[in-house]
Each structure stands twice: as structure tokens, then as C-alpha cells.
């Protein structure tokens, strides 16, 4: 069943979104580029950790990323359930990918 009013509403919304996007062009551009970098970085970390565990310095060296930034990503990915902490090695902890069955886009606890 088609409701012409609904369609009209949708059109209006589309137009309004377009205007809003135009207004926020610069912000959107910088957010998008940041998101793309993040996506790439997270993918690199995930690929590096496939089937193994590693410490922050290991990961950082492996994917050529500053160590503080690596930790920032790992902390975030841990929060959102993609990474778990493994045992300690010297003064550092190891991290590994969360097992697939537990992987949920969910904050722990």
C-alpha cells in the first residue's frame, strides 16, 4: 500500500538532508577521511593479530604505527569487544582478537 503523503515526507527529508550535508561539507569531509584512516588502521591491527597474540610494541612495529596510537586503538577495540587481553610478557601485556563467537559490537560487562 502506497501512501503519497509518506512519499512526500520522504522527499522533503531527502532535500533537508542534502541541505544539511552542504552546510556541514567541511566537517563531513574531515570526519570521512578520519574514518577511512581509522578503518585502515583497525584492519591492519586485525590482520596483524590474526592467529596470534602480540604486545603493543610488537603490533606497533609490525604495522608501522606509533606505539601510543597503537595503544589507543587497542584500548578502543577492547572496549568494543573486538580484542581481548592475553597474558603478560615482561612489562607488557599481549592482546589477541576476540574469539569469533564472542565478537559482538558491545561494550564489555
Amino acid at each position: 500500500m502506497k501512501n503519497p503523503d509518506n512519499d512526500k515526507e520522504k522527499e522533503a527529508k531527502k532535500a533537508a538532508m542534502k541541505t544539511l550535508r552542504a552546510q556541514r561539507k567541511d566537517l563531513i569531509a574531515s570526519a570521512s577521511s578520519r574514518m577511512k584512516t581509522q578503518k585502515k588502521d583497525i584492519k591492519a591491527i586485525k590482520e596483524f593479530l590474526k592467529g596470534k597474540k602480540a604486545t603493543i610494541p610488537d603490533i606497533a612495529e609490525g604495522i608501522d604505527m606509533p606505539k601510543d596510537e597503537t595503544l589507543w586503538y587497542i584500548a578502543t577495540m577492547k572496549k568494543y569487544g573486538q580484542i581481548v587481553e592475553a597474558e603478560k610478557e615482561g612489562a607488557f601485556f599481549n592482546y589477541s582478537l576476540n574469539e569469533p563467537e564472542k565478537t559482538q559490537e558491545k561494550e564489555e560487562v
Binding site: 603493543i56 601510543d68 597503537t70 595503544l71 587497542i74 584500548a75 577492547k78 587481553e85 607488557f92 601485556f93
Partner: peptide
Amino acid sequence: GPYNRVLRPSDGMEPD
């Protein structure tokens, strides 16, 4: 907290 334990932010080392 961000790490759920005490680590130093530059490299994730447990500070001594």
C-alpha cells in the same frame, strides 16, 4: 577506565 589496568600511555608498559 581505558585500559582496565595501570599502563603508561606511550607504549602500554606497566610502569615500575
